[in-house]
Design a protein around this nucleic acid. Sequence first.
DNA 1: ATTATGATGAGAATATGGTCTCACGTCAAG
DNA 2: CTTGACGTGAGACCATATTCTCATCATAAT
Lengths: 207, 207
Amino acid sequence: MASGRVNQKTRTRHALLQAAVDLVRQGKPPSMAEAAELALVSAATAYRYFPSAQALWEEASLELTEPWELDVIDAAGEDPAARLDAVVQSIGWHMLDEEVPYRNLARASLERWFREAGLPEHERVPVREARRMRWNAKALEPLRDQLPEPTIDQLVNALALVWGTEAVVVLRDVCRLDVEEAKRVMLNAARWMLEGALALTSTEVVD
Amino acid sequence: MASGRVNQKTRTRHALLQAAVDLVRQGKPPSMAEAAELALVSAATAYRYFPSAQALWEEASLELTEPWELDVIDAAGEDPAARLDAVVQSIGWHMLDEEVPYRNLARASLERWFREAGLPEHERVPVREARRMRWNAKALEPLRDQLPEPTIDQLVNALALVWGTEAVVVLRDVCRLDVEEAKRVMLNAARWMLEGALALTSTEVVD
DNA sequence: ATTATGATGAGAATATGGTCTCACGTCAAG
DNA sequence: CTTGACGTGAGACCATATTCTCATCATAAT
């Protein structure tokens, strides 16, 4: 027996998570009290399942994230540009359509940096698992024999600048674009970045 | 008479700000109490000058920001690439060297977005004054007659993705690069973006 | 130097986020 | 069906951030 009363526990957990998901959707700030109330659970119990409102919000946001499959890329063919387009148009654009949860994740990781800033190197949580990098790498696979290894690595990193949560924040808050304009810029930025890398690769690179 | 006792007030204000600046430099989390103590001022007084610890920290971070002059750009000559390099190498790289205050500003503006998310359109603070855009626009001025207006606008926005606070966060946290690698990628990303825009401008643009 | 104005300090008061305690009721193994 | 382990609720409790109150003291104008 794992430990009696498994159903009860998963039920409460789901109720809490679901409540948090609803609140996140509404852009509400993290609040254990509010989530607990909505989940018809006492605050004390809520804290037994999630260490803090932040944590709950973060998990709820993750819940609102699409579980993209790497297939989209291969489905786009062998042309790196087309593959990159596919990534940006599916994931990148989706982020622009669903800003809130992604902003939550961005905030969470930023906050974590400050919290752990002064701490010893060990005793740190695996901050972010950069899914983004995998997508970029996968999209650029066909370039393996056209570009030198280090250039590809740099390009993968550079593309991480162009689409993703932070890009959403930049395009919306800094550039003050509406969602449609932001999508256009994001896509063009990705295309330009790739094209530029291909064009400049022979000449100057690095500082 | 503006309102007696002006000196006294500016003195306390400066003391507080200076204390906060020191604490920000050390990466300390916002704390009115700590800043007040360091400034030899009571907490109550501190709150008379700044509405919250967050606000004080934000202003202190702004203080640690370099007051860059647009001159750097013209000094780089007429070549857009060189002008862009100048911007990235001065401002962008500086941000990588002085992460803390910039991260503070990023966090502050992100938090503000959430705080004001549910609010009526009016009653909002002018969130961010995008200095970044001005720099990019200025750097690209020589392109005025080579590229169509809308393309330049898009490029200005796209470049905002490549260098700036959010770019610092991406390169350091998501890509997990050390400062030197991050500098190289940031510079190359900017160069690629420009080159790509020049190369693709005639063919496909926008979605 | 005197004084009225207004800045300040100390600490009480409030709000909020999170922890702890313990009595209660329920689920599941027997 | 019984029963004991275990999840839960209610509220006390603590810590921190911000506000309030009022007495005190410094400063600028006289």
